[in-house]
């Protein structure tokens, strides 16, 4: 659907995304009580990433934006990755040479 050539999300799409997010919320709460060991956090984060992706793509209308916007988002997430990887590299490696811990 579109007005003046601008794409517009249909109510059906928006409600379907909303319902998917609700199902994923129920899923993440339910699965948290199942013992998956160390996998629990990974599953919780995977579901959260799936939910965030639905919000970004459909609710924030990135699917209608020019390619520039995904580039900006991925660029920002890259620096988030730098924050985590480099700082954790420091903490993980402390004490490897017998000092610093």
């Amino acid at each position: 659907m579109s007005t003046n050539g601008h794409p517009v999300s249909s109510v059906r799409t928006l409600v379907a995304v909303f319902l998917s997010l609700m199902v994923l919320t129920a899923l993440t709460t339910g699965i948290a009580f199942v013992n998956l060991g160390a996998g629990s956090t990974a599953v919780a984060l995977a579901i959260a990433i799936a939910k965030a992706s639905l919000v970004v793509w459909f609710f924030m209308n990135v699917r209608f934006n020019t390619r520039l916007i995904p580039v900006v988002i991925v660029g920002g997430l890259f620096f988030l990755l730098v924050l985590f990887v480099e700082t954790f590299a420091d903490y993980f490696s402390r004490g490897w040479y017998g000092h610093g811990r």
Partner: peptide
């Protein structure tokens, strides 16, 4: 992201 990390950690 806050919800599973804060509320759901360690439930299992």
């Amino acid at each position: 992201f806050l919800f599973p990390l804060l509320y759901l950690a360690g439930r299992h």
